[in-house]
């Protein structure tokens, strides 16, 4: 890892250490390295020792805000490191009355975009040993030598469409913000699908969704899925059949996406956590795109005070059906 990165980690550690040891927070949610060098997983730091494990690199994709739901039950005051999407996720939870604002300290981090190990490995060709980064490039180090790749090309799907890498909400910004990004790619896949015939689209989704294991990892990772009892698990009424059936897969994914209509903060954690790689984010982005087109631009998670578009209306709203 590059030198500047170590500096950044030190800066972050110093900032949160004061608060954790000084009792301003009881727990810090951050990242630590996982089993492999290309994994960064959540860190639950309660001591100076724990903080030694703190990591901040190009693999800190896990959205930490959702962990607040559980941690706030145990701890009075929790600090969280937030990237752009973690902060929007926090606003999602805040607006849904899931977290009390005064019991959370948000430490803002500008996000450079997180790297996709599968892409790196494929690009490397042979066994990838490690990477370094410099000037918008990733240096892939393999047993055979070094190769360079454009960093933007190596990003996770969820980061390729990101427009807001800086946290929209924070108590303290730990590193200098980097400003909004343009993302021509955000709705590209949605538009491609829209251009298909109904038959083709159905074939696409039937194939995608047929892989669904119904493990509900997408739901567990999602900041808009905060119900105490999800509809899929309810016995009475039984909304969702348990059988492994294409129609049940459609029911689950359509309703889950609809539950995020006007609420999805586009963090892409659903898709990233899907073990079979279903392109779930396209369902969410379809809704974001349509609702913005029909009812005006709205970015969920940017401002917790702005009412989600499906909770409000204008008498002269347009409709996606004939009103004659």
């Amino acid at each position: 890892m590059a030198e500047h990165n170590l500096e950044q980690i030190e800066k972050i550690r110093e900032a949160v250490k004061q608060d954790l040891l000084g009792g301003r927070i009881d727990l810090l949610l951050g990242w630590e390295k996982g089993h492999y060098w290309w994994q960064s997983r959540p860190l639950f730091a309660q001591s100076e020792e724990d903080l030694e494990k703190l990591a901040w690199d190009s693999f800190c994709a896990v959205n930490l805000s959702r962990y607040l739901l559980e941690e706030l039950k145990e701890h009075n005051k929790v600090g969280v490191l937030v990237k752009g999407c973690d902060a929007r996720a926090f606003n999602r939870l805040l607006q849904d009355n899931m977290v009390p604002r005064d019991r959370v300290i948000l430490y803002g981090l500008p996000c450079p975009g997180m790297l996709d190990y599968d892409r790196l490995a494929a690009e490397a060709g042979s066994v990838l040993l490690s990477i370094t980064e410099e000037n918008g490039q990733v240096v892939l180090i393999t047993a055979e030598g070094e190769a360079k790749a454009d960093r933007d090309e190596m990003l996770l799907d969820k980061c390729r469409g990101c427009i807001y890498p800086d946290p929209a909400v924070y108590d303290q910004m730990l590193l200098p913000p980097q400003g909004e990004k343009e993302s021509p790619e955000r709705f590209k896949k949605v538009e491609e699908l829209e251009a298909m015939s109904a038959q083709e689209r159905f074939a696409y989704w039937e194939k995608e969704l047929s892989r669904c294991l119904r493990c509900y990892a997408c739901r567990q990772a999602c900041p808009y899925c905060s119900c105490r009892e999800c509809f899929v698990e309810q016995e009475n009424p039984r909304w969702q059949g348990r059988a492994y059936q294409p129609s049940e897969n459609f029911m689950f994914h359509l309703i889950r996406a609809y539950h995020g209509a006007g609420r999805c903060i586009d963090c892409g954690e659903c898709e990233r956590s899907c073990p079979v790689g279903i392109s779930l984010q396209e369902l969410n982005r379809k809704l974001i795109k349509d609702i913005n087109e029909l009812y005006g631009d709205y970015e969920a998670g940017l401002d917790a005070e702005l009412e989600p578009p499906l909770l409000t209306y204008r008498p002269d709203d347009p409709a996606a059906f004939s009103e004659k």
Binding site: N97, M98, S226, E229, E307, P308, L311, T312
Partner: peptide
């Protein structure tokens, strides 16, 4: 089972829904 998001309150035309605090074992 209510998670207390109060989206119901936002769409109620009659202001018939309001938040209330409950205590729960944990």
């Amino acid at each position: 089972e209510c998670s207390g998001c109060l989206y119901c309150e936002a769409v109620c035309p009659y202001s018939a829904i309001s938040p209330v605090e409950i205590e729960e074992r944990y």
